[in-house]
């Protein structure tokens, strides 16, 4: 039986252009997002049908999250935040289908997405506020002798953002899929052992079913957490003064 980490193996499909199963599922997720949303909104109905309601709900959910965190001026980042949310969510959910590859279970992908967010913040922050953007590291109302320490802590906290942002998503997806695989593997092992032990097989099966439901929650929740943190960090770029 394949090991629990076999599912994270990158397998080439078209080696000549480096097209792998990871690339396939990235493209698949993007195609699913664009195709699904275009299909759902094809009627442009004033009174939406079911699929259009879902598309509108996603739109308003992300727009609401962004607006809550950054206010109206943050809405210029809406396409970016919406793309991030939809990509992470779709990649996470696609990974829940047995046999499918989970794009977000690779730290390089989540780290690249986190760096995209952080570099957007840094570039936009300096473009909009110039050196005033560095005020992000200097909280107001701190006594003078404490300031150097606070600034160091703020810088470290800022630098750890892309790491925590990417590791959180990566670790959640990885651990969830490994746990699922392990419990599912127990079912097979117990059945293969035969005899009285085989009667214990339903126990890990129940666990696997429960974990499956939990992983669906995690798949959505991690996409949401990634989005919310992105919005909060974007707010720093928009309003660097604490």
């Amino acid at each position: 039986m394949a090991s629990p980490i076999e599912q994270f193996q990158i397998k080439p499909i078209i080696p000549a252009i480096g097209f792998t199963n990871s690339s396939l599922f990235m493209i698949g997720a993007a195609a699913l997002i664009v195709g699904g949303l275009m299909f759902a909104s094809r009627k442009r109905a004033v009174v939406p049908g079911r699929s259009q309601s879902v598309a509108e709900m996603l739109h308003e959910f992300v727009a609401g999250t962004l607006k809550d965190a950054t206010g109206q001026e943050g809405m210029k980042f809406f396409p970016l935040v919406f793309s991030l949310f939809m990509f992470v969510l779709t990649a996470n959910l696609l990974g829940m289908i047995p046999g499918f590859f989970t794009v977000t279970s690779h730290v390089i992908v989540t780290f690249a997405l986190a760096m995209l967010v952080i570099s957007t913040i840094v570039i936009y922050g300096f473009m909009k506020h110039g050196t005033h953007f560095l005020g992000l590291f200097v909280p107001s109302g701190v006594p003078g002798w404490l300031l150097p320490f606070i600034v160091v802590i703020e810088i470290i906290s800022f630098l750890s953002r892309p790491i925590s942002l990417s590791l959180r998503l990566f670790a959640n997806m990885l651990a969830g899929h490994i746990a699922l695989k392990v419990f599912a593997g127990f079912v097979v092992s117990l059945l293969a052992a035969g005899g009285a032990v085989a009667f214990l097989a339903p126990l890990p099966l129940v666990m696997a079913v429960a974990l499956m439901a939990f992983e669906f929650l995690v798949a959505f929740l991690q996409a949401y957490v990634f989005t919310v943190l992105t919005c909060i960090y974007l707010n720093d770029a928009l309003h660097p003064g604490h």
């Binding site: 990158i10 480096g18 993007a30 275009m38 396409p79 793309s83 939809m86 990509f87 690249a112 995209l116």
Partner: peptide, 24 residues
Amino acid sequence: TFAGQLVWLAITFVLLYVLLSRLV
């Protein structure tokens, strides 16, 4: 595997971003 993933992620995400922001 990092370089390949990054390239394809960049292609995919730019495509996704453009299609979403221009069309969807």
